[in-house]
């Protein structure tokens, strides 16, 4: 299949970028990133500058890949990361626009790569249980209902890709933060630090200049792990609790 691409090129975070047209011959069985590999190999052979993008596992779990495809973070297929999109999703002759995540808190590093270290800094602000190595009680000492464990898992499945931020008109990180707060708030192990965690993480999110949530729901629609909007409702409740108990 023959494709017409418009790809965002940007030398570094300081210089402005622009969309550049490219043509590429692809195969329907290729993954989206393999299609870009083929284009890059061609550019290298011609002595031109290849296109930088983030990727690693290429199986939908590391959260590295991060392309906005035709305006949608992670592209056309629901609950699917960029690296798991295959070219059979597109008709022959398709014209495709490829851009990086866009958010103030995610500056472009080069071309399609952005800096998402703000997400790590939010986790460092209490997105954990304070337990030292060696201090753990027997794993079965505290029973956890199957459904609770499953629900906690649903939130814990977040891969930290940042698509939710990229999709949000306010560039809010509420779904990401809500997923972590909800995961730990559901489990007995997360109870002790529950309130402090919510307020610290929200403060860290604000400090990184992510926007607020105004219930657009775009984040849930693009999330490759189908993290539910309930996470945000839960985060708000946790935050209210923090305010009420004076722990905020």
């Amino acid at each position: 299949m023959r494709l017409q691409l418009h790809i965002w090129r940007q030398k570094n975070s300081r210089e402005p970028g622009r969309l550049v047209p490219y043509a590429v011959q692809a195969d329907e069985h290729m993954s989206f990133l393999e299609m870009l590999d083929v284009l890059n190999a061609e550019l290298i052979r011609k002595g031109e500058d290849p296109i930088a993008f983030d990727h690693d596992c290429r199986e939908g779990i590391c959260g590295a890949c991060s392309l906005v495809i035709d305006g949608v973070p992670h592209g056309p297929r629901a609950a699917t990361t960029t690296c798991q999109i295959h070219m059979r999703e597109f008709p022959d002759g398709a014209e495709i626009t490829i851009e990086p995540w866009r958010a103030y808190a995610f500056p472009v590093v080069k071309d399609l790569m952005v800096d998402r270290s703000a997400l790590d800094r939010i986790i460092a602000a209490g997105g954990y249980v304070s337990v030292r190595t060696g201090a753990a009680p027997d794993a079965n000492a505290i029973p956890i209902g199957k459904n609770t464990a499953e629900k906690a898992f649903d939130y814990a499945a977040c891969i930290g890709c940042g698509a939710c931020v990229a999709a949000c008109p306010n560039a809010s990180a509420m779904l990401f933060v809500g997923a972590k707060v909800s995961h730990l708030a559901l489990l007995p192990q997360g109870q002790v630090e529950r309130t402090a965690r919510a307020s610290r993480m929200i403060a860290a999110m604000d400090a990184e200049s992510f926007g607020g949530c105004s219930n657009h729901g775009e984040c849930e629609a693009v999330c490759p792990k189908s993290i539910s909007l309930d996470a945000i409702a839960k985060l708000n409740r946790e935050f209210m609790r923090a305010v009420a108990t004076g722990e905020s």
Partner: peptide, 11 residues
Amino acid sequence: QCVAQGVPFAR
């Protein structure tokens, strides 16, 4: 150790 950190193992 993992359970204490909040790893949601199958139950």
